[in-house]
Design a protein around this nucleic acid. Structure first.
Length: 199
DNA sequence: CATAGGATCGCCT
DNA sequence: GGCGATCCTATGT
């Protein structure tokens, strides 16, 4: 079942970040092969009060303006001059909540993922790191502001995985030391085991 | 216009 | 665990 626009408009970005674990993130770029995987790690960004968010204090810039759009669109931006980072905008228009996808378990289109230069080791089949997730799925800045509920180009599906609370690790977010006290919030969510999943 | 720094990654030691 | 790559973005003059 493709996740709907109303799903992404839900107000609690922490709940959604946790709920997205186990869901499929799928891409079909320029009519090519489908690629996708199971979401294994997310981070919640909850502006205006969250100092780690690009939209802290409701600050709107050219880069982050899509964060203020109605939930269900992509926020893709370039980090460190070379990595595209993929976020899902949530909540209602004007409330800049977003969820960063940090890791997936690749399932669909493994050959295409490898062709894109992503190395998948046998021991650990996770694709780790937000820059690697976008590389694997062919997501780049041209997909900024793209709706994610139409089942085209980039979308999410619920395939019936239910993740028990004890299989979710909650931890501080990565790379946000500049956010002072908010850097310690346990707003990163990660699967502890992949065997709980239906592939 | 100039500048500093970033929601990172992979290779090196 | 340290560091270089690499360039856009935001900010200040």
């Amino acid at each position: 079942m493709i996740l709907s626009e109303s799903y992404f408009k839900q107000p609690d970005v922490l709940y959604l970040s946790e709920n997205l674990l186990g869901k499929y993130l799928i891409s079909q770029i320029d009519g090519g092969e489908m690629t996708g995987g199971i979401i294994a790690e997310t981070e919640a960004y909850r502006a205006p009060e969250d100092r780690a968010s690009h939209a802290y204090g409701n600050k709107m810039t050219k880069r982050n303006s899509v964060m203020f759009a109605s939930g269900g669109v992509a926020y893709v931006y370039l980090c460190y001059g070379m990595h595209n980072l993929f976020n899902i905008v949530t909540n209602l228009e004007g409330i800049p909540h977003a969820i960063l996808i940090r890791a997936i378990i690749p399932v669909i289109g493994m050959e295409t993922i490898k062709k894109r230069g992503v190395i998948i080791s046998k021991e650990d089949s996770f694709i780790e790191g937000p820059g690697n997730v976008t590389k694997a799925l062919g997501i780049a800045r041209q997909h900024n502001a793209l709706p994610l509920y139409l089942g085209k180009t980039i979308w999410l599906e619920d395939c019936g995985n239910t993740i028990a609370t004890e299989n979710i690790i909650k931890a501080p977010r990565i790379g946000v030391a500049y956010a002072k006290e908010d850097a310690l919030l346990p707003w990163r969510f990660r699967l502890s085991f992949k065997r709980v999943l239906k592939m």
